[in-house]
Simulated assay, not measured.
Amino acid sequence: MPRSATASLAALNGVSRLSELTRTPADQTVGRVLPVLDGLADLLPWGGLRRGSTVVVRGSTTLLLALLAAATVNGSWAAVVGVPDLGLLAAAELGVVVHRLALVPQPGEQLLAVTGALLDGFDLVAVRQAGELREADARRLSARARNRGAVLVPFGQWPGADLELDCTGRWSGLGEGHGYLRQREVVVRSRGRGAAARGNQVRLVLPGQDGIALPVPTQAELRRVLP
């Protein structure tokens, strides 16, 4: 193993050991639900991100970052593993408090160990697997999140998740061969198990004004505010 990878893993193991002194088991954790932006709350049966849960995001790194924003504003710590193209500027524009965000862009063969160590010390851990992660290992990480009272947010496929969020949409901002991509109108659908079995969907603008996620107004709402 390269020396840098060994040092990084040792540092994360230090986080894990420290967290054993500072974290309580999931069933004793105060603040069972971490907040999310208002536009996302209707997607989650708990009104936020329930500690101990696994919430899959598919189709949008912007949605992934938006899920982390409100929690970091309220003092939670988040980490993103295995997403090398994710930028701190994009995170900040969506409202993420970047000094409470850790990035591990390329964990390589240590993805399982790194993600497990982060779940011991962070409130939210997002992870994109490189290649195929064994189903048993994925379920082991979900169990670790449940035991430690953290929220695991896989980006892509993940077996046995409590909730799945699928995002589709289109970008706007380009003119006839010129301009910049400014925002994306999306439809986000949720489905899951237990309280999330009924599912839901919302239409959002990502990012909206000031970078936050804004719900797309309905025709009835537009008629009330437009002349």
Rank of each mutant, 00 (worst) to 15 (best):
A138M: 11
S172A: 12
E164L: 08
S190Y: 11
R189K: 10
P154Q: 13
R139G: 01
H178Q: 13
R139L: 15
V153Q: 02
R139I: 07
V187H: 10
R146C: 07
Q157Y: 12
N147H: 09
L141K: 07
G175K: 02
V186I: 04
S142Y: 09
N147E: 13
L174V: 05
E185K: 04
R170F: 05
L165N: 01
G160E: 13
V151H: 12
L174Y: 08
S142G: 15
D162W: 08
A143N: 15
Q183V: 00
F155G: 04
D166N: 10
Q183R: 13
W171A: 12
V151E: 09
V186S: 03
V187Q: 14
G160W: 06
R139P: 00
A143Y: 12
D162L: 07
G179F: 06
G173L: 04
A143D: 15
Q157W: 14
Q183L: 06
A143H: 15
S172D: 09
V187C: 14
E164F: 02
E185F: 06
V153Y: 03
L181T: 05
P154G: 13
D162I: 05
G169Q: 09
R170V: 08
N147P: 00
S190H: 07
E164R: 14
G179I: 01
D162V: 03
L163G: 03
P154C: 13
H178K: 13
W158L: 03
G175N: 01
R184W: 06
N147K: 08
G156S: 08
G179T: 02
R139N: 12
V151Y: 13
E185C: 05
N147Y: 03
R144K: 11
R189M: 06
T168G: 05
V187D: 12
P154D: 14
V187G: 09
G173I: 02
L163Q: 04
G179K: 04
S142K: 06
A138Q: 15
L181P: 00
V151L: 13
G175W: 04
Q157E: 15
V153A: 01
A150N: 06
R191P: 00
G169M: 09
V186T: 05
S142P: 04
A138D: 11
R140N: 11
E164P: 00
R139M: 14
L174W: 11
V151N: 11
R182I: 10
E164I: 04
L181G: 06
S172F: 11
R140L: 15
R144T: 09
W158H: 07
T168F: 04
R139Y: 03
Q183D: 14
L165K: 05
A143S: 15
S172N: 05
G173M: 04
L181W: 13
Q183H: 13
G149T: 09
V153N: 03
W171H: 13
L163H: 04
R182P: 02
R184M: 12
L141F: 09
Q157V: 10
G156P: 04
G179Q: 01
C167E: 08
L152M: 06
R144W: 01
A145K: 07
L152C: 08
V153M: 15
R184A: 09
A161R: 01
R139Q: 14
R191Y: 07
G149W: 15
G177D: 02
V188E: 03
G177Y: 12
V186P: 00
L181M: 08
A145C: 10
D162S: 10
D162E: 12
E164H: 09
G156E: 11
R146N: 07
V186E: 05
G175V: 01
P159T: 09
L181D: 09
